[in-house]
Every structure is written in structure tokens, then in C-alpha cells.
Design a protein around this nucleic acid. Structure first.
Lengths: 108, 108
DNA sequence: GCCATAAAACTCACAATGTGATTAATATTG
DNA sequence: CAATATTAATCACATTGTGAGTTTTATGGC
């Protein structure tokens, strides 16, 4: 039953999943850039997180300010079971579709 | 270098890639439904194909009418090198992002 | 205390993608 | 010719993607 994730939403959810306790705007953005080589704007990340939270796929909690220069409080995100399920569905669908395409794609 | 594919665009491109000579609206739709279990509307497929062609990722050619009931001519699609490259990029990015998430996703 | 600087979050208008209900075009069958 | 089958196309609207710019709150140096 419907409720699929866009591509960027998937990237963000994977980042949240893997960063575990350390997932907030900056690290999420960094994780995506590091892993995919794709440049990401901060705004895109925050907007997407907000929408994902609105859909109940993710939840956020404020951290405490840290004693470093610019140590503003962070907003940490975690996956909710619904988010994990949605990510699993979308990812499985793509994998199923990609199956067998290996040598038909570019090798570079 | 920007120019990323949406999720549905990826599904459509994978279908075109795998159907080889037999890729047209109906078979593309069928392939996606069969492989992913996700229900797809015909309109979504045609609209997406049109946009992909406009971006130069795919090209189309008319087939001949076939001698069967309702044997209307088909519009066949093929991937252009640009399309193959774009699909490779997007797919690799997602895979890179997903790497290591295996056991953190749902098993069902 | 005050100003410069740093880190993080947020806003928001606009662009790109996703979707489904509906309509059109052509063919065969009876 | 009317009914039906197959495919394509249209199109308004919903959802997602994006980036330039702004705000908030902290520290460091003077």
C-alpha cells in the first residue's frame, strides 16, 4: 500500500539510521556528502527532516548546548518503527527492480 | 555534478534497461508492478517517460501496428548513454548510502 | 560588557517529480 | 457499424527537492 519515499528522503533516512545517536542536521548532511559524493544543501536536509517527522517516520529531541565555540543545542533525530518499515519497503523495491542489471550499467 | 533521478524515474529506467527491445508503456508498467509489488498508474509512466526523453536520457521510436485486437502501434523506448550514466550514478549513490544497513533494516 | 566569529537550525519561494482520472487514437471481432 | 481491446496522451494537482538567505545562541578576545 502506497507511501513511498523520494530518493533524497531515502538518503536522509539511511543517514539517520547509521548515525544512531549522533544524527542531527550537520552530521546527516556530512554523511550523505561523504558517502555519495553528492553535494547537499543544509536547507534541503532540514526541510526533508521536518516533513519526515510530520509523517511520523522520524522523531526529534533537543540536545544540550555544548561547551565549544558556537555550541548551540542540537536537534537529534531517530528513526521510528514506521520510518524503518518505509525505508525497508522502498529500498527492497529498488533492489528488486535493479536485480540483474549489474553488467548492463556502466562499469566506471 | 547535479542531475539526480527521482525514485520513480529510477524504477522506469531500470525497466527500460531490462526490457531491452520490448520496452513500451504497458510492459514498463507491468515490469515495475511485477518486480516491486507496487501499484503503478499508466499516466505516471507516460509522464515520466516524456520527461526523461526531454532530458535526453531516453529515446523513443514508433513500432508498427500488430495484427491483434487493439493492435495499436507501440512507442518503444531505449536508454541513451546519458540515461545509462545517470542511472548508474543515482544507483551507486544509494547503494553507497545503504552500505552496512543490512541488519538494521527490517527482516520481513 | 561588547563585538567578532562559529555552529546549528530555520524559512520560504520556487523547481522538479509523482500521480491518477480522464480522454483519444486505432485496431479487431461479430 | 457497434462493441471491445490495447495503447498512448493529457492535465491539474500533490508531493518532494533545493538553495539563498536569516535567526538563534554559544564562545573568545579585548
Amino acid at each position: 500500500m502506497g507511501d513511498w519515499l523520494g530518493e533524497f528522503e531515502q538518503l536522509v533516512l539511511f543517514a539517520v539510521l547509521q548515525l544512531e545517536d549522533g544524527a542531527y542536521g550537520v552530521t546527516i548532511r556530512q554523511a550523505i556528502e561523504d558517502r555519495t559524493g553528492r553535494q547537499v544543501s543544509a536547507g534541503a536536509v532540514y526541510t526533508t527532516l521536518e516533513r519526515l517527522e510530520g509523517r511520523g517516520l522520524v522523531l526529534s529531541a533537543w540536545g544540550d548546548p555544548t561547551p565549544e565555540r558556537g555550541g548551540k543545542r542540537k536537534r537529534y533525530y531517530r528513526l521510528r518503527p514506521e520510518g524503518r518499515a518505509a525505508l525497508t519497503r522502498s529500498w527492497q523495491a529498488l533492489r528488486a527492480m535493479a536485480r540483474g542489471s549489474g553488467r548492463k550499467l556502466e562499469s566506471t
